[in-house]
Nucleic acid binder design. Structure first.
Lengths: 207, 207
DNA sequence: CTTAGCGCTAAGCAACCGCTTAGTATGGAG
DNA sequence: CTCCATACTAAGCGGTTGCTTAGCGCTAAG
């Protein structure tokens, strides 16, 4: 019955600004935090409602089911991270990959709450919703791969296995959402910079 | 009420050979597969029992609770991967890190079922059990860090941020458990070799 | 003032949860 | 053959689940 901490959530996570009405947005944010903290299956609709400061039945005014809440979070999360990755441009090939890795890894730190739901609750989506999200994941892979391939074409990266390297880079960034803690020693930006540096070291040619 | 696939599980996952009696081991293996597939909270004790080909009550002959099943899986999994990482020796510093990364990443692929439970269900452990497992995780970090530090001391690795690099290497290996699929194009050994190569590239000094 | 509609709640439904209890089949010791 | 411990099952307990229903207070058009 308490809304403690929810305003803080809303400030931290501007991902949901476009969601209306207000109660529906608060419900989404509450669900994202509950799913990230305890997992989708361990979260009850009563948990979500009380986090949003409303009664259990209020969930069903705005969403058809608990799964639809998850789908909304997953969809917006995937779209946001894909947009972030796709809008990198300008600079040379090295700087573009540096910015791409920094942005993608940094997002998984800063929005680790959303990112955890996005990355670890895919299996709880309905088959139809899962397919929709899988297409976005394919696009994310394609985008990161093209940044690396551009550097290979120019000869500034040495990558024997393009598919394998892309997999490793994405995997490295995604796993940030698992271990990152807000109170830790590194800020999301520092993590982005560290990871971008490590990835560029990994792909640089031998001299 | 079917045991289909369980013998296959047992063959694939020799991790549990030492667990007796037979029914208790089958229960653990069934639980590991159920937890990995649907998550701890989404798995019912009835799921586990029926996967093991027994009645729901049979679980409580061998284990006090569902959580105790999880703890057993988590403990043995952590001990196994730590042992695997610690027993690397011989060769020079580079070869030792190569073997360590290959072994650790390869384990997370080959035993991805166990590894998923180990890495993603920590939060479902009781506080006491969690503390016990956290100590093992500290040792894993320490072991990997010392392999890297040895190379830095000899000047064959260039690592500006030892703690950050260790984090990234472990993170990279652990995340294999998330994306690996048995039917995929790469075998666990190939993944180990790919990742060991990528890590060594990441840590090599500039020339 | 009436009335329709919206956002919300109190109460509750059937189903399912982890776990317990009472009792049965089995097999080895004396 | 008797006895008893062991490994298991059938049945069921109290509590919780996702979701529904009936009805509330409020706003605003006619």
């Amino acid at each position: 019955m308490t809304t403690t901490g929810l305003d803080e959530f809303a400030l931290l996570d501007e991902t949901w600004r476009s969601v209306t009405p207000d109660a529906a947005r608060r419900m989404l944010i509450a669900a994202a935090h509950a799913f990230a903290g305890k997992g989708y299956h361990a979260t009850t609709t009563r948990d979500i409602a009380s986090l949003a400061g409303m009664s259990p039945a209020a969930v069903y005014i705005h969403y058809r089911s608990k799964e639809e809440l998850l789908f909304n979070i997953s969809l917006v999360g995937h779209e946001t991270s894909l947009k972030l990755l796709s809008r990198i441009q300008g600079g040379d090939v090295v700087e573009r990959l540096r910015n791409a890795v920094a942005a993608f890894a940094g997002w998984h730190a800063e929005f680790h709450t959303t990112a955890r739901v996005v990355q670890y609750e895919l299996g709880a989506l309905s088959p139809e919703h899962h397919a929709q999200v899988a297409e976005l994941r394919r696009q994310i892979d394609q985008q990161m791969r093209s940044y690396i391939a551009d550097g290979v074409a120019e000869g500034v990266f040495d990558v024997p296995d393009l598919k394998g390297a892309t997999l490793a880079v994405l995997s490295l960034c995604i796993d940030v959402a698992r271990w990152y803690q807000p109170g830790g020693k590194r800020t999301p930006d520092e993590i982005g910079a560290l990871y971008a540096d490590l990835v560029l070291r990994m792909l640089r040619p031998a001299n």
